[in-house]
Structure formats: structure tokens, C-alpha cells
């Protein structure tokens, strides 16, 4: 059970949050212009790496805000949290 530092509410127990998978996969602005393969890339392909991963989390039982988390999936250490729309604080 992690402690996540919600960028709006501060440090809270993981039970207050829900995970939203990999971050920085922007929804294409013009989906109609994409081929099946390109659309599938956006829709299905996720990295799921062991190591530093960029993730989306939602403070679902708190302020209900979505934000980004940089987490090492091998030891669950969270290296950074940052708001939606902000640039990752470490090199992605």
C-alpha cells in the first residue's frame, strides 16, 4: 500500500486512489485520419515495464482529480507526481 502525494490534497493512503494506467498517451486529435494500425497503437498498446513507469492516477475518494505519477514498478517507489498537462519532471 503506497502513500501517494496528491498534487492537490497532499499525502494520502493508496486506498483513496485508483490507477488509470500508462500516462502520456494522448487521444489523437483526428481519429478518422488514422489507419487501423495507428488507431490500434493508441487503443491497445501499453508498455507495462519493470522500472520507471509514467502513470495516471485519480484521487477517486478525495478531490477526484487526475494526475501523473512517476513510479518504479520494481519497488513501488514514487519519484514524482505532477498535474495533468504538466511536463514530466524527469526525462521520460
Amino acid at each position: 500500500m503506497f502513500i501517494i502525494n496528491c498534487p492537490y490534497c497532499g499525502e494520502r493512503d493508496q486506498t483513496e486512489f485508483s490507477s488509470g494506467g500508462e500516462a502520456h498517451i494522448a487521444r489523437p486529435k483526428q481519429p478518422t485520419e488514422l489507419s487501423d494500425d495507428e488507431w490500434a497503437e493508441f487503443l491497445f498498446m501499453r508498455k507495462n515495464i519493470k522500472g520507471i513507469q509514467f502513470e495516471r492516477w485519480n484521487h477517486s475518494h478525495g478531490c477526484r482529480k487526475w494526475f501523473n505519477v512517476v513510479r518504479d514498478t520494481s519497488n513501488d517507489k514514487i519519484h514524482a507526481v505532477y498535474k495533468m498537462g504538466e511536463k514530466p519532471p524527469v526525462n521520460k
Binding site: 485508483s18 488509470g20 494522448a26 487521444r27 485519480n58 482529480k65 487526475w66 495533468m84
Partner: peptide, 13 residues
């Protein structure tokens, strides 16, 4: 609601 908030906050701010 969570899904709609997600789109509003991330895709269509």
C-alpha cells in the same frame, strides 16, 4: 462520472 471527469481533465480541458 469518473470516465467523464477523466476526459474533461485530460483530453478536453
Amino acid at each position: 462520472l469518473t470516465k467523464l471527469e477523466d476526459y474533461l481533465q485530460t483530453e478536453w480541458p
